[in-house]
Nucleic acid binder design. Structure first.
Length: 500
RNA sequence: GGCGUCAUCGUCUAGCCUGGUUAGGACACGGGGCCUUCAAUCCCGUAACAUGGGUUCAAAUCCCAUUGACGCCA
């Protein structure tokens, strides 16, 4: 255990992520996790996961699982924890109540904390009075110096009570790695409730105990915790515990510059998994929200991020969550990552989130082919099923006029499709691929004046016949994926459509 | 309401510590090339130091104030 008086060492730091399992794994928490992880890896330290589930009413198992799955998906593995099923799981505060109780008793015994028997009504009335007089609402300290016999008597009578800590009437200053010196006037706070009972510690108390017991050297967390920091330091000092180094990260904001929340759209990591984003892209995107490498590199994998990460270079102001940039990153990774890896991600994705099509007759190979030609034009996997439905359904719904190339007539379009039919029929089933298609079509065009310098006259109707879309991949690529038989069928159908 | 934090293109940011830059990059946006559409890609472009006051030969950079935004508690 750390010597309370020894200043924390910068080498081999120990950091933690301490989420409450009261909602889906939030993007902001994910970024906090990433920065903690990067800092630990960069400095040869340890990253610890601690689930803060002392609030029994709001904590749920599925949320804890979601956090764990999210961290694993992002590749942010934690380094230690209690044994669970052969592996080490996260720490859970709900399993550490004995520890908190021990320190609570110590504080009580030392006279640094005390039982408070004021009723909620009393507290509320007091608060209203102070506010109406324009004063900061804080506890009066009424129960601070109750005679011990009276306390014992009330306790024996089971009179409702909470435990408060005696707040020193001084100012307190702490150093923040990102913000520099931060100062608070403790006198404005009043005696803080640190536990509802010996077995019900409150957030600020259990955090302090755990950070100490887990020998946390650096507390890296969101800016929203800045006001909690002085409270935690007071508890540390009452117990004679060392002070970790603090670093408060800027918030992730919605487009209106307020804290990124549900009303801004999807804020949970799962929702992006559902949309079909890649973990590499999410990590990269998250890293650049509030941090920037010394050079101008933007595309970085986890390993590179670890190498370049510098906690002190983290931005102070909040960062707006920019969907377009996320999309850009994802599109980049879709094309940069090894094909096999993307195919595997896609296979997993389809398994986990079945698309609104019957894929029973579609094999993996077919899916991979689609993916290959569509990669440059999608931002995530779910888009594939929205914009490329023609690969998954045989019934194309498009107006016949769409088949007509700009400035052309219906008859010419019919002629073009008939020509297309003839060209395709020259290719055997086994030679039916985009290379052969292209060479056959180009040869045909070279020999037919009406298409020279105006390939669109021939290729546009073909592309629409195959896709039914105004915008799509090229006709040869689509035809190759669909196969000769299906391609011919669609072209004939297009001709029929034009006649009708 | 109290306390705290923050402020460079629309967005993410470099530059600030150690004053002198055509204030740089990326996303987005606009134009163009390529071209069978859409993407991808290449070229070009629009666009910012919150405001006011100091200090200084010189301020995005140092100091002060104001404003605004956000966070926490209530």
């Amino acid at each position: 255990m750390l010597d309370p008086k020894t200043p924390q060492q910068l080498f081999a730091p120990r950091v933690r992520l301490a989420p409450s399992p009261t909602g889906w794994f939030h993007f902001g928490t994910a970024r906090t996790a990433l920065f903690n992880y990067l800092f630990a890896r960069k400095n040869g330290g340890k990253f610890i996961l601690r689930i803060e589930d002392t609030d029994k009413k709001r904590s749920q198992k599925i949320y804890e699982e979601d956090i764990i799955n999210g961290l694993k998906w992002l590749g942010l593995d934690w380094d230690e924890g209690p044994e669970r099923e052969g592996d080490f799981g996260p720490y859970r505060q709900s399993e550490r109540l004995d520890l908190y109780e021990k320190y609570l008793k110590q504080l009580l015994a030392d006279g640094k904390a005390y039982y408070c028997f004021c009723t909620p009504e009393e507290i509320e009335a007091q608060k209203q009075d102070l506010i109406s007089r324009g004063l900061p609402p804080k506890y009066s300290g009424k129960c601070r110096d109750l005679p011990p016999q009276l306390v014992a008597q009330y306790l024996a009578e089971k009179k409702p009570a909470v435990i408060r800590i005696k707040m020193p009437k001084t100012t307190l200053q702490f150093d923040d790695l990102i913000r520099g010196k931060v100062e608070f006037n403790l006198d404005l706070l009043g005696d803080l409730v640190i536990a509802k009972s010996l077995r019900e510690p409150l957030y600020n108390f259990s955090v302090v105990i755990d950070d100490y017991l887990m020998q946390i050297t650096h507390v890296i967390r969101g800016e929203d915790h800045i006001p909690n920091t002085p409270k935690q330091i007071v508890i540390q000092e009452a117990l004679g515990l060392p002070r970790p180094i603090y670093a408060h990260l800027p918030m992730i904001l919605g487009p209106d510059r307020s804290k990124f929340s549900k009303r801004h759209g999807a804020t949970a990591l799962v929702e992006y998994q559902k949309l079909g984003y890649l973990p590499e892209a999410v990590v990269n995107f998250l890293a650049l929200l509030g941090w920037h490498p010394a050079d101008n590199e933007e595309i970085m994998d986890l390993e590179t991020l670890v190498k370049k990460f510098e906690l002190t270079k983290v931005q102070k102001g909040g960062a707006i969550f920019n969907f377009q940039k996320l999309n850009w990153f994802n599109n980049q990774y879709l094309r940069i990552l090894p094909k096999e890896r993307v195919f595997n991600y896609f296979a997993d994705y389809v398994k986990k989130y079945p698309p609104p099509f019957d894929l029973s007759e579609i094999n993996q190979e077919y899916l991979n082919k689609i993916l290959e030609i569509e990669l440059p034009r999608i931002n995530n996997f779910s888009e594939l099923f929205q914009t490329c439905d023609f690969f998954f359904t045989k019934e194309l719904k498009y107006p016949p006029e769409l088949l007509i190339w700009k400035g052309e007539s219906v008859t010419n379009t019919q002629q073009a499709l008939t020509d297309v039919l003839n060209i395709i029929n020259q290719i055997s089933d086994e030679d039916f691929n985009r290379i052969n298609l292209q060479s056959k079509f180009y040869t045909f065009i070279d020999n037919h004046l009406e298409y020279q310098g105006n390939r669109g006259k021939l290729l546009w109707p073909l592309r629409v016949a195959l896709s039914g879309k105004q915008a799509s991949a090229g006709p040869f690529e689509i035809a190759e994926v669909l196969g000769k038989k299906e391609s011919l069928r669609r072209i004939k159908e297009a001709i029929n459509k034009l006649e009708a």
